[in-house]
């Protein structure tokens, strides 16, 4: 996007949430373990197009790109992902309640 017209640089800053830090950690670990590369991450980010930049937050785009690469690498299937996301949604209404499997057994 170098050179495109744009307004003032926004300076709001937020502290990273746990789920965002986990996305960051997953990307680094997947790279270290050779599951995919940072170039694969960037490629998936770019393929999301301009809309994603407006509609999704930074780490939302990242987890989508991490997932895209893991699906392509055959680490798990779309069926497994879809089923697990449904199951996660049934665990509770907040990230705190849904964030790990142990939590539901309490």
């Amino acid at each position: 996007m170098g050179g495109q017209a744009a307004g003032p640089v926004p300076t709001d800053q937020h502290d990273f949430a746990l789920w965002e830090k986990r996305v960051d950690a997953l990307m680094v670990l997947c790279g270290e373990k050779g599951l995919f590369t940072v170039d694969g991450l960037r490629r998936a980010l770019e393929d999301m197009g301009e809309d994603a930049f407006e509609c999704m937050s930074y780490y939302e785009r990242w987890i989508a790109a991490v997932n895209q690469n893991l699906i392509e690498a055959g680490i798990y299937s779309l069926e497994e992902l879809g089923a697990r996301m449904e199951e996660v949604g049934r665990r509770g209404a907040t990230y705190g309640e849904a964030q790990n499997r142990e939590a539901q057994d309490d």
């Binding site: 789920w19 986990r22 997953l26 798990y76 996301m85 990230y95 705190g96």
Partner: peptide, 22 residues
């Protein structure tokens, strides 16, 4: 940032699922 005590989002569900599957 909206975190542990706000409504679970689609992308948070994906993070949890991806992490667990990995």
């Amino acid at each position: 940032r909206a975190d542990n005590d706000t409504a679970l989002t689609y992308w948070q569900r994906m993070e949890i699922a991806v992490r667990e599957l990995l």
